[in-house]
Design a protein around this nucleic acid. Structure first.
Length: 191
DNA sequence: GGGACGATTGAA
DNA sequence: TCAATCGTCCCA
């Protein structure tokens, strides 16, 4: 049985929350009553006003203001005029940080993820502890992971564009399934 | 008010 | 390699 993550989970430094989100379950309840669930497999950390890759480096604006609020809120924005990016705000009030969720087991890119989960601008500021249409659950999985520089932020300069703040579940699905099997006490059969 | 530009994706 | 597509942000 998995349990919904509460606000205090998110009110920590983004470099702790980001890797901790790997293996968690993103849950979306649709208007028709059905729901979509998938394991989070890829995330990126954006950390404060010093981080030139972070939207908050330009100061507080209409678009990014929710990042300056407390953790556990949803930060979504439109990119390239057609894709919504789904982020989770972390840390405490006044410390702008967020985790970009780039992939789950059923969608391998941030734009494809929001399209599949039907997440749009109406989710701006949504509270993940209280919302009845989107939240994240802990299933007890702690998959191993690797890191790389963040994607698509060359403009952030040689340092910030190379910081290894992209976190990926090792071996992606295979690792998740193996971890889940272990949690359930099931022997994983490998070829 | 005008123009440049994306934390992307999919097709050529 | 490149177009799609539009809200936000910066400058005037």
């Amino acid at each position: 049985m998995s349990k919904r993550l509460s606000t205090d989970f998110y009110c920590r430094d983004v470099l702790e929350v980001a890797p901790d989100l790997l293996g968690k379950i993103l849950v979306r309840c649709l208007p028709d009553g059905s729901s979509i669930r998938a394991y989070i497999t890829e995330v990126e950390a954006y950390r404060g006003t010093d981080d030139l890759g972070c939207h908050a480096s330009k100061g507080k604006t209409k678009r990014n203001k929710v990042m300056f609020d407390h953790g556990g809120l949803v930060y979504v924005y439109l990119i390239y005029g057609m894709y919504w990016m789904f982020n989770v705000v972390t840390s405490v009030y006044g410390d702008p940080q967020a985790v970009l969720v780039r992939g789950v087991t059923s969608a391998n890119g941030p734009g494809k993820l929001t399209r599949l989960f039907q997440i749009d601008g109406s989710f701006y500021g949504e509270n993940l502890e209280a919302s009845s249409r989107i939240w994240i659950e802990d299933n007890g999985l702690k998959p191993s992971y690797t890191t790389t520089p963040r994607i698509g932020i060359d403009y952030a300069g040689p340092y910030w564009s190379m910081v290894p703040w992209r976190f990926l579940v090792a071996a992606s699905e295979a690792s998740l399934h193996e971890n889940e099997a272990l949690r359930n006490g099931v022997v994983a059969h490998k070829k």
